[in-house]
Design a protein around this nucleic acid. Structure first.
Lengths: 169, 169
DNA sequence: TGAAAACCAAGTAAAATACTCAGGAATGAT
DNA sequence: ATCATTCCTGAGTATTTTACTTGGTTTTCA
C-alpha cells in the first residue's frame, strides 16, 4: 500500500462524488474546479477508478460520474489501490525474494507495516468520511461556491479563474 | 512520514550496524556488499544519518561506522526521518492550508494516517529488531558469508562479484 | 445539429530516486 | 614518511514517477 498524492487526489475526488450522491452526476470539470486538480489528470484517474468498478460515467450533457457501489462499501484502501499501480518497490514488493532469492533483513518489518496501513485504510469507507463533522464543514463551504456558480452569481469569477488556470497549467 | 526504498535502505544499513555492535566498526563497503546497495549511495545516506546524530564514523584503516546511541533508543521512525527530507507532499504536507488557505476535504484523514504510521515506526527500535527471530536467522546467514570473506575462503568470489557490480553500476 | 460531457492515446515537464564520478582528508599500519 | 584504507564531499546523471498537456473521438441530450 503506497501513499502518494495520486492516491489522495483519487480519494478526494471520490469523496466529492459521495457528497453529491443522490443529486445529478458530478462532472470532472466540477471536481477539477472544486479540488483544484487538472481535468485531464482527473480523466486518467477516473479511467482507473472505472476499470476498478468504483464509478460509472454517463456521457453527454447532464452526464458525469456516479459511484458504482454504495458509499459504505467503498473503502479508502480500494480507491488508492485502484489508481496506484503497485510499483515494483524495487525490494520487498511483496515477494520474499528481495535479496538474492532470500528475505532481506527488514522484510518482515515492511510487510507488517504495509499490513497495518492497509488495515487502517480498509476500515474506513467513503460513507464514514461523509459523516465526519470536519468533512461536512469543508463540504458546506465548497457547496456554497458551487451553488453560487449554478445561480450565475459567481459566473464571472469562474470564467476568470478558469482562464487563469488555463494559462498556468 | 513517507515510505520509500530510501528509508528502507537506511533502516537495513542501521540494522546491519546494530547486529555488529560491540565488534569493530562496520565499513560501508561491508554493508554495500552484504545488503547490495551502492557504496556511494550509502555514503550519501550515512552523511545524513551522521548529521542526525545516529551514527559516528572513524576514518582510516580499521575504521567504519558505529551507532552513536544505544540501539534500544533508536527508533525506526528516527532513521527514516533522517534520510527522508520531508518532501513538500504538494498538498497536506502538514500545514492545514492545502486548498486556497483552507483544509482540503481529506486533510484530517491523511494527518490521522500519518500519525498512525509514525506511532507504529516510533514504537519499534533497532534493539527490538535485532532480537527478532527472523532477523537473527537472516543475520546468521549473512554472517557466515562475511566470515568466509574474512578467512579468505571466498575471497575470489567477492573480487569477482565486485568486478561484476562495478561493470553493472 | 451542436454543445456537453465522457473517453482515449501520446507526449512532456518537473521532481524524486538511485545512483556514478572524481576527488579530498584523516588515520592506522609498514 | 608513505601508503592503503576509510570516511567525507560535491557535482553530475539515468531512470522512474508524478502531474499535467495536447489533440483528438464518441456518446447523448436538447
Amino acid at each position: 500500500m503506497r501513499l502518494t498524492t495520486k492516491g489522495r487526489y483519487a480519494v478526494t475526488a471520490m469523496l466529492d462524488l459521495a457528497l453529491q450522491e443522490g443529486k445529478r452526476p458530478v462532472t470532472l470539470q466540477d471536481i477539477a474546479v472544486n479540488q483544484e486538480i487538472s481535468l485531464s489528470y482527473l480523466e486518467q484517474l477516473f479511467a482507473k477508478l472505472r476499470k476498478a468498478g468504483l464509478v460509472r460515467g454517463t456521457r453527454g450533457p447532464g452526464g458525469g460520474y456516479r459511484l458504482a457501489k454504495k458509499m459504505d462499501s467503498i473503502s479508502i484502501a480500494e480507491v488508492i489501490s485502484a489508481v496506484d499501480e503497485k510499483a515494483d518497490m524495487t525490494r520487498c514488493g511483496g515477494n520474499s525474494d528481495c535479496l538474492d532469492g532470500e528475505k532481506c533483513l527488514t522484510h518482515e518489518l515492511w510487510m507488517e507495516l504495509s499490513e497495518k496501513i492497509f488495515e487502517f485504510l480498509n476500515a474506513i469507507t467513503l460513507g464514514e468520511l461523509v459523516r465526519r463533522p470536519e468533512v461536512i464543514a469543508v463540504a458546506e463551504r465548497q457547496e456554497a461556491v458551487r451553488e453560487g456558480l449554478r445561480t450565475g452569481r459567481l459566473k464571472t469569477v469562474v470564467v476568470e479563474a478558469d482562464a487563469v488556470i488555463g494559462t498556468l497549467k
